[in-house]
Nucleic acid binder design. Structure first.
Lengths: 137, 137
DNA sequence: TTATGACTTTATAATCATTATAAAGTCATA
DNA sequence: TATGACTTTATAATGATTATAAAGTCATAA
């Protein structure tokens, strides 16, 4: 129950219930862009009694308040990202893991009068482990 | 029933049935990155008797053979893109339309030993029409 | 203390794009 | 015209997410 998280949630107009604080703490602690089910499974493992619906409600609230970002690297699953600043994502086609890739936000050369709000860059390929696995297996 | 399409499908090892040729022709003719339902609706409108399953089968076959690309700009819907060469996409948050944005493929500065296969860049914001609509409405 | 009311969480059902399955149709070739 | 491989089709199944409404929580006022 991090005091810093409580303050941060309040700053964003979010009532810091214990579930919300716990979910946010997990999101910032983990690096691997969890899905709703990842979050749900981890909280269960820790012995918390959570409903999957609460996880959905909470991440949607965080998204609406701009606290986290959604990353859709997989066909179906939505993943979440609490790390600040622009960065790209890399999705391993073999093991499905998702990594952050530091990178400047690309600027389109196109002067088409569009109003740009957000940018998403997703690379795909093979991570180091899966390259090794391919060559040895 | 384009002769060029028939040849192209054959080159890619795809038996050019009339449905497949028609769907490919529609994909290259349209610029707005149709969904499966867009394709299905257009073919119905033209009086063809198609099943939705055929559209799914066909676009999945095209994807597997590398004839088209999938673009997932929206939360749920998969859209398709037959235009060649790298380009980014822009999704209007208001009307949902998807535009091509000419752009060089970004190269990650990260030397992490990853094996890169593909890149997807999606911008979001407001298209020109929706900006006007916002200011006048 | 107890009542009030707003907000949270929960369980359950509903939605909806997509995939799986298996039957029916097509078509070239023997 | 029989065979067999490939296509299309209708239908059911899947699975992530959202909607709904009941139950729980918690601060504050009487």
């Amino acid at each position: 129950m991090s005091k810093r998280t409580v303050a941060l949630l309040k700053e964003h107009g979010i009532n810091p219930s214990s579930q919300r604080v716990r979910i946010y703490d997990y999101l910032v602690a983990t690096e691997d862009h969890p899905t709703v089910d990842d979050i749900y499974a981890e909280l269960q493992r820790e012995g918390h009694l959570f409903s999957r619906a609460t996880v959905y409600n909470t991440v949607n609230l965080f998204l609406k308040k701009g606290l986290i970002r959604a990353v859709r690297v997989e066909a179906k699953e939505m993943r979440f990202d609490a790390s600040p600043g622009f960065h790209a994502h890399f999705k391993c086609e073999s093991c499905g893991s998702v990594l952050d890739i530091p990178m400047d936000e690309p600027i389109p050369d196109d002067p088409d009068g569009l109003e740009y709000h957000g940018t998403s860059v997703i690379f795909s390929g093979l991570c180091r482990d899966c390259q090794k696995r391919k060559h040895s297996g």
